[in-house]
Design a binder for these strands. Sequence first.
DNA 1: GAGCACTGC
Length: 743
Amino acid sequence: MPSMATKDGTRFNSNHPQFKPKVINGDQKRQKIEKQRRSLPIASVEKRLVEEVRKNDTLIIVGETGSGKTTQLPQYLYNGGFCHNGGIIGITQPRRVAAVTVAKRVAEECGVELGQKVGYSIRFEDKTSMSTKIKYMTDGLLLREALLDPCLSRYSVIVVDEAHERTVQTDVLLGLLKAVQKNRSQISNGSSNIHDHVKKSNNVKEEHNEVRKSNPFKLIIMSASLDARGFSEYFGGAKAVHVLGRQFPVDILYTAQPETDCLDAALVTIFQIHLEEGPGDILVFLSGQEEIESIEGLVRENLKKLPETNQKLLIFPLFSSLPSEKQLKVFTPAPVGFRKVILATNIAETSVTIPGVKYVIDPGLVKVRSYCPDTGIESLIVVKTSKAQALQRSGRAGREGPGKCYRLYPESRFEGLADSTVPEIKRCNLSNVILQLSALGVDDIIGFDFMEKPDRMAVIRSLELLYLLGALTDEKKLSDPIGHQMARLPLEPNDSKALILASQFDCLEEMLIVVSMLSVESIFYVPRDKLEESRTVIKSFSSPEGDHVTLVNVYRASIEYLEKNRTENGNEKAEKNLRKWCKDNFINSRSLKHARDIYSQIRENVERMGLKISSCGDDMLQLRRCLAASYFLNAALKQPDGTYRVLANGQIAEIHPTSVIRRAKPEAGPSMLCLERQLELIQMLKLMTGRRLGINNPGAHIIGFFIFLSKEQESAQIGGAYDPLKLYVEHVIMNKRLVFSLF
DNA sequence: GAGCACTGC
């Protein structure tokens, strides 16, 4: 009889009819939950943990997977009286789904309605109320809250969960929390010297929360990595406690020799497991969509060559841009006698947990974002994983029972890997971080107390951009009103600036669409086998004015479809039909929905700021000018040989093959636009060193990543006080001066 | 004619 162990250790027979789940009454349910709670590893140290928090203002908790720290600790603290005096417990998560699912679970455990004592708050969704005491949220959201209330005066405890992931948001938050803690302890000691900015921006709340603020502020950092030293040192030698986890043992296997062809090695290993090992699904970690799709083809091909009885292997690709309905398929259990193989990116490392996985194949590579401060370009590169990451991957095989992990490299290579992944803050563009910190009153970014300092040149680059966008003054303070407005918008600085400009040039309605669409993952999704068909469909949206206007067309078309459908079929049906419409038009409906959410949020933001919202109808000239003015650093010149050269750094650029202006290669004619992100990729490939470009290149066409102007237009009177061409050329010159003075 | 890892406000 096959039997399975449930999470709480009870055993049940999965096939026997009498064990089908019965409707259980409330009391039984409570008892079951209580039993589960008590069986968690962390339960045995509840008293000690509460005591440690009472004794220490900052505590590091290292809890392995399955310890129950995320759901239990906040409840222990609540019961331990940490919400007295009206303060609340905030727990931050790097991901939205985690905040939501954990909050739901804890509300259930507490036997309360979600949104009352226990709630969550994420972008677009706030399930909290006046009575909420335990609040789960994303770390980014807490950062936004800090802009309105820099002392975080509502909170008596903040728990930063998954701190080992070291996202940009976590790192900024840690620095901020450290400062808040210092400020609040000074206030409670009566020696207040809190920053002026904090006082000014918080006048009303200050009085309101005076009582609470005098309470000490407890800070708890939770990490899954075994090494707590870094966090402890950063927080002045804070105490660290360890909580055991609950994981099944995973056998680690290495190859004898280094593999030359990773894909081939992965392929061989898949079949080796499939043919020789017992039941259990296989999870393979790959670097990206391309790799996944090619290995998928190879597995299918090889499978056909096997005897029919051995062909019972089901293949599931899994990556973030895959439409949701295809992603969901990995959760359906394999039919009896079948085995699943999941070909996944990093998404399966933390974000998605797939039941049934017993075997993990880890080629030891990962695609990461990297940032080159010299060129200011972000790109994606494939690098070796860290030890911590390899550990995280192998752990995916031991969720439900003992498992095996096949590392496709020799053990000696493992020893040579970095202990942990380089924190994101050291490999990304910092302009948004700096904007946020400036809004919090931090003027000296280089001196800010980061756990790990970002590259100095990267800071300078980003300061430069913000200065050129008009967000910072000469004194590196946030400018009024532009800087303050930009900091309030949840967008990239360039996009925020585009909105502000658009409000002055009567095209804010359209710019709202553009920045919303630019904020989401790629809007078109084309399956490999439908390449030809997609081309004609997508063409129906494309505008000779460029990719931005094309995005406006897509958005408008979808809204028009939705609204017409709504009046005929009602809201729910209309949304359903829209998803079908998206599929027919090769649009990723998840991305479109996301864009619509962002649109409404940003629209509300700009309304509150008092920006004028008007539409330019079908005349997109001003819209393009505003884009050129905000993305001026991407301005490039067309060379006589047909290539483009970026003015700000002299790099050779090319128009992306998916751009609607790829073919047009802008002749003299209307201005053209194309997608900045796509060009950045090409730009990266065509790096040019050395020679910097003269502005007065005869015969050259000025091109933005966003705007093309022919020679004729360049000399023509653009008129009015607003001249985008002049504007960005001036800016570029200014930028060059700045850059050179820094070298 | 080429390709975007994963999050987040």
